[in-house]
Amino acid sequence: MSLLFYILAALSVLTGLGVVLARNPINSVLSLIACFLTIAGHYVLLNAQFLAVVHVIVYTGAIMVLFLFVIMLMDMNRANEPHKKWTTKLAATLSGCLLLLVLLASTAKVMLGGPAPVLSPDMGLIKNLGMVLYRDYLYPFETSAILFLSAMVGAMVLGKHEPKKI
């Protein structure tokens, strides 16, 4: 089991690096897809099969397909690649470093705390998940649903053309 974990973890890190380091945006997106699949593998190892499959359906099967669409239809000539000003680059580097700091600080706290105790072996099964979501966390769940709905309506409004007058 732990061997499987280390293989998966190595793959996640490698594909994650591939996302950042690949020169070709398509390869970058494909690495991200592979990375998501390995994360789904981690969920399976944690006995959260439902979460794993939903992760594959939503992220790999829907969101990344749209990403791939956009990138495939983009013009990827190196000649007309936009070049940013040096101030923008500096700001980007600084904020990236700050983000790294925040992430490191938060993960360090988790690591020092030791592994989280498993509440029950079939915690990730759909029945228990439904119980937790719809009984204990009903209010946040419904709120986030409304948030998604409003985002969807917003996208519709933005995407809708004004009818042309002839």
Partner: peptide
């Protein structure tokens, strides 16, 4: 115990072969 969703997930991966 999530057989249907597994099929659904694999079907959604099938798009990549074509794209």
């Amino acid at each position: 115990n999530i057989g249907i969703l597994y099929i659904f997930a694999i079907v959604s991966l099938g798009v990549y072969g074509i794209m």
